[in-house]
Design a protein around this nucleic acid. Structure first.
Lengths: 209, 209, 209, 209
DNA sequence: CATGAATGAGCATTCATTCAT
DNA sequence: GATGAATGAATGCTCATTCAT
């Protein structure tokens, strides 16, 4: 029977503190990226949101890029089961899409609500569009999902990559517009987005493009 | 009768040189933004592409942001007639959309072809999406167009803002995927995107959402 | 008739200031290298000795190494005529050596006198031997000189490279010891060093090694 | 009768481990200094070459300087008997010098051979001359030896300190040049260096300087 | 108005040293 | 006494901005 340590699981105050610090930096980065965007953020911004010293950052990550990737990986771990549940409970493509779009739009509304209450000065500013690591993750997962489902449903004569891309693009852009509304109407947006995709599939299949 | 100068129109060598310098900086910025993206670009990058001195930049623009806006305004002036022609030659919504999507996808393919041959090292790298000023302009124009057309066509019971947003999102995301294909299939992409929107309008109108 | 500017010679206050700043940094670096050694010195140390701002350093040099090289080049320009004069006035090898060794030992005594009055905390400290750029220059010049002279004098059966190296080594090490003496006896040291080399040449030639 | 502990000699596992750790750090430092030089080396470089943790370093040494001194002391203990043997077997000054110079040049050739095969990137780069602790030790020992011998031989009218310094300088500089040769000719170098010193003694004595 | 050197705040990164475990 | 993570001062370097010429 292998020891826990051999499995990479550690105990003791030291190990606990390490894990806590890592999570602390990740959480700070998550907040900062959401607030001012990846490009505008710098390492000091991130570390300032933690009780740690600047040098400590480098004990955990080599660069801003690496934190970003770590958050994305992390998000993937948390998001995948959620999407899995949507998948399992979906009786058809329609309910899958409503579930997935709903998850995304609600996530966006929540994240942005927080960002606004904090201070969200110049997001969506000037032709630069920032995806948080979470968004990146979600999109990739859903894109893959959609392509698979469409293939399984026998729509192999249509350009599933483009269709999936369209589905993602719709989510992105409608999401931005939803955030302008007071209050954000996530469920309504999800229904519209779903409707667009569902209808298009039939039409594209008929046209054979 | 107002003097020309009062209208912002100037004559003489001085004025000519001024106008030329301004255009020179704009052109340089356009190239640089397309090459390395708005965020990565700095003022030195821009000025280095011109025969001017760094201080001169500040005689024309206060910041990188301001150049960006100026390029967008400039693009608008050049893009509007183009879209006007699409509008005038379009017999119906379908041909308008094919024209507009086609214009965008071809523009993207061309701009990107150049960027790749030059050197486009770290675009689309890490959840940051860069719109050139031209793209920003095009999107806003088309978004407005679409909303207007939908209203005129009597689809005022559907959420035209979301639909237009979806149309834009489709363009953005499909555009990214198109650029991965060899060769980029702009016309094909335009047909698909158009089909999606056209079909959706009917469906959304029926559903009344 | 070419303009001065075409020859790289510039006038005007701007150009004057530039040249002055460059010389200012060089002089500061010279002092700092002599005081605490090349390795211990950092760019802030250098810039602190000037009235300039830190960023200005990089307008003139890319790195500490580059300043070092520049000083060495500079020294070469000033030292070469000096050595040329020693060469021309020397009637024989003996007077050349006395002249060259004398130049070096006096240079060392002067430079060190200054360094001591400033503050020379830990030079010659711990197995690290710092050559100022001037010393490096002088040594290379003299090494070459000696090899040439020995060749010309027909001592081509002896290992002139080693002999020249020995002559340099003697200068270096005796120089260090001279600096411990109060007052430094530069002329005495020059006579001894010369004697050693002169005698050795005869002996080595006889032995044929 | 003093206890062993009072003499600094300890027993038990603890003490053994302590001694081993100390030697481990010393050995690592020796390697690192030889590889990249004293100045370029930092404590992390040293500790990385051991199985110990960074904090442990400070249980044994206060600084990089202190390790350097410790290595030098250590070297002295190992080098002194070697030189003692040279001394005892030497029939005259000539054979002593050949023995001592030979020891040094061979040591240098060996150490450098290893350093080159490992990686010695930027030694002797820019006017900085690095002595390993071993070299420092050797030089001090030989300098003392020579002064003593010269005094004993009745050459007290000559400047034995300068002469010894010259002897050391010759070793240093010729050593550098020897390392450029393929293969290094340690014995040849030792003969030349010896010849120079031997001849000089007579001449300086005659001249009375 | 153009120039381009000077400025200095700001950022990434390293590393000697400490100290709770 | 060993550990190794946390610390934060120190350093190299960049770059938007100013301003004398």
């Amino acid at each position: 029977m292998p020891k826990l340590a051999e499995l990479g699981i550690q105990h003791g105050k030291r190990a606990m503190a390490k894990a806590a610090n890592r999570r602390c930096i990740l959480e700070a980065a998550r907040v900062v990226f959401a607030r001012i965007g990846f490009d505008a953020a710098n390492i000091r911004d991130i570390i300032r949101e933690t009780p740690l010293a600047s040098g400590t950052f480098y004990n955990y990550f080599k660069s801003k890029e690496e934190v970003f990737e770590a958050i994305a990986d992390d998000s993937l771990k948390r998001f995948r089961p959620l999407l899995q549940s949507v998948r399992e409970n979906a009786e058809d493509l329609n309910s899958y899409l409503v579930g997935a779009y709903g998850a995304y739009f609600h996530f966006l509304a929540n994240e942005n609500a927080q960002a606004i209450t904090d201070d969200a000065p110049h997001l969506a500013l000037i032709g630069v569009r920032v995806d948080t690591p979470e968004m990146k993750t979600m999109f990739e997962e859903i894109h893959t999902d959609l392509q698979l489902v469409l293939m399984k449903m026998g729509y192999d004569q249509i350009d599933t990559d483009y269709l999936a891309a369209a589905a993602i693009g719709i989510a992105r852009e409608m999401g931005d517009h939803m955030l302008q509304r007071r209050p954000p109407d996530a469920d309504h947006a999800a229904r519209i987005a779903t409707q667009i995709i569902i209808t298009s599939i039939e039409a594209l299949a008929e046209e054979g493009i």
